[in-house]
Design a protein around this nucleic acid. Structure first.
Lengths: 312, 312
DNA sequence: GAAATCTATACCTAGGAGGTATAATAGGAA
DNA sequence: TTCCTATTATACCTCCTAGGTATAGATTTC
């Protein structure tokens, strides 16, 4: 698959006419036909229905067209951005984090970092905990905030706090109205929705481990890709879902939340970074986080803080 | 820019060594060097700092590496998906919608559509109102739900309802505690945050028009890309923001909402589709929407319904 | 400072992208 | 149907350029 083929296919799909597309691309029509043929051959799928005029796209072609257009627009953007960064020569600092931290301390941390280092371009990129390890090693990010423990020689990790977990109930559920914390054993036999489905290991596995350790068997278990989908399914009555406490700010209208009684039912917030990193900005960031925790912000309410980890 | 160059650059960036990368790519080292040089030349930016070993990436290179890796992974995914769709030969129906409709009737509509047409693959794609027009014409989507009125010969549009607007206040704001609706004139001189910044025209312009028509001048006006950012800035005390009523389910903890008193302060929900579309699924979808509105669901509470539009 | 390791330059070869001419096919008019 | 037009596919040729080899130049290490 070559970019040229994407470019050509988008032109043909837009024009629904090989000859006109060839004109626009400033090439002759036969090479254009051949490139499209090669693309279809490589994919093993017909993208264009040539049996009648004007041409139409097959379902696969329609999908490919949509995606190819997006890719091309994105590449255009990447080129511009790269040039801009190359010219500006400003230092960049990229933070990778799981979505739930955006409901916690992330926004404030970034705000404080921007204040401290006005000349630093700080970027946030949402990614799963496991992705953060490779992203750190490949230097795509400089700092990660995740929820899954892992070990890697090149990456140092630090548990900042343990966040309490809550159960999400559909409004219609019998147990949804009670206000007091719920025992994990009450989940026996309930349909459960877990996330994310990929990549493993993930928070989905932590959820299953949590129940497995105390021998509670949920009924039907369904895996979905992300928390939004999971809560949507809870709202639709498809089952219950266990999430970190801070995430219960989502969908307050159609989902009820109850804290889990067991104090050990927690999920950690883990900060990770490259070992032996030059520059030493990491130590200063730890200092900033210590200050933040000392202010006792609202998102910290439902956590067992482990500030000791920062005292190194 | 060619895909080959991205592939090569990712290999070099990962290995931090041209010779080893060349081995992995099964090519000789000199052609690899040349391809990277050409890439850098086209971008007009140095991506790799060659002045010392082991090689390191420049800031621009680091950014490009990150993006290029993502593009390649995405292309892989697109190839698989295209093949899967090509083999399955199932019909697809793609809906484009602005984010706020996901807090309204969209989820239920899709649920009902899946029920009605079990063999149809229904997909949802978030996109701005203006993007929907070109996406419809290029057949990337089959149905759009947006908020901005536009005219296009090939696209038919239908206003489903007019949703009331609310003002988002930071918790600290003097006017945030009152429960009764607020008059638009009270916004005189207040800092305002509007969204989305691109593409124009958008809800951001509607907001400004609304105030302009009654001669109310906000103080400082800031444009941000999306509603999440806008509400984040409201929470941080940077100003007020006008949003559709259904979106006030977001961030209930750190943002206060007050309905706007003026009954004409509304934003429409507009359904759009290709004129003269064969298949006639659109008429059946209108029927489904009529049924949904008849059930008077919670997200409909704050709207002036215009069911008459559906009676055609 | 010499050896080792690695990248850049010079030059050559061949695979394939693009061009031209033309055959095959679809769609419309009589 | 049959002819005519518009459009795409096939055959074949040319030439650009990606990739190969040899080697010079640069950087690191001992």
């Amino acid at each position: 698959m070559e970019l040229r083929q994407l470019r050509y296919f988008v032109a043909v799909a837009t024009e629904r006419n090989f000859s006109r597309a060839a004109e626009i691309l400033h090439i002759a029509q036969p090479p254009l036909s051949r490139q499209i043929q090669q693309l279809e051959e490589e994919l093993g799928v017909n993208l264009i229905d040539r049996s009648k005029r004007p041409l139409s796209l097959t379902e696969a072609g329609r999908f490919f067209f949509d995606q190819a257009s997006q890719i091309m627009a994105r590449l255009e953007h990447i080129r511009d951005q790269t040039q801009r960064i190359g010219k500006a020569q400003r230092e960049r600092f990229v933070i990778g984090c799981v979505g739930s931290t955006l409901y916690g301390g992330m926004p404030d941390l970034v705000r404080r970092m921007r204040q401290r280092w006005p000349d630093l371009d700080i970027e946030i990129r949402e990614m799963m905990s496991t992705e953060q390890v490779t992203a750190l090693k490949e230097r795509r990010i400089d700092l990660g905030f995740g929820r899954v423990r892992f070990n890697d020689r090149e990456v140092e990790r630090l548990t900042l706090r343990e966040e309490r977990l809550v159960v999400a109930f559909p409004k219609s559920h019998a147990k949804s109205t009670a206000k007091e914390p719920i025992g994990l054993c009450e989940l026996e036999g309930e349909s459960l929705i877990i996330y994310p489905s990929t990549p493993r290991p993930s928070f989905a596995d932590e959820t299953l481990n949590l129940l497995g350790e105390i021998n509670v068997n949920p009924g039907h278990v369904e895996e979905v890709r992300e928390i939004q989908t999971a809560l949507g399914m809870v709202a639709a009555g498809a089952g219950l879902c266990i999430i970190p406490a801070a995430s219960q700010r989502q969908r307050p209208d159609d989902v009820c939340y109850r804290m889990i009684a067991d104090e050990r039912a927690t999920s950690p917030i883990i900060m990770s970074y490259r070992r032996n990193e030059a520059g030493g900005r990491i130590e200063l960031i730890k200092q900033i986080i210590r200050e933040m925790y000392a202010d006792n912000p609202p998102w910290l309410q439902l956590s067992n803080v482990r500030l000791d980890a920062l005292e190194s």
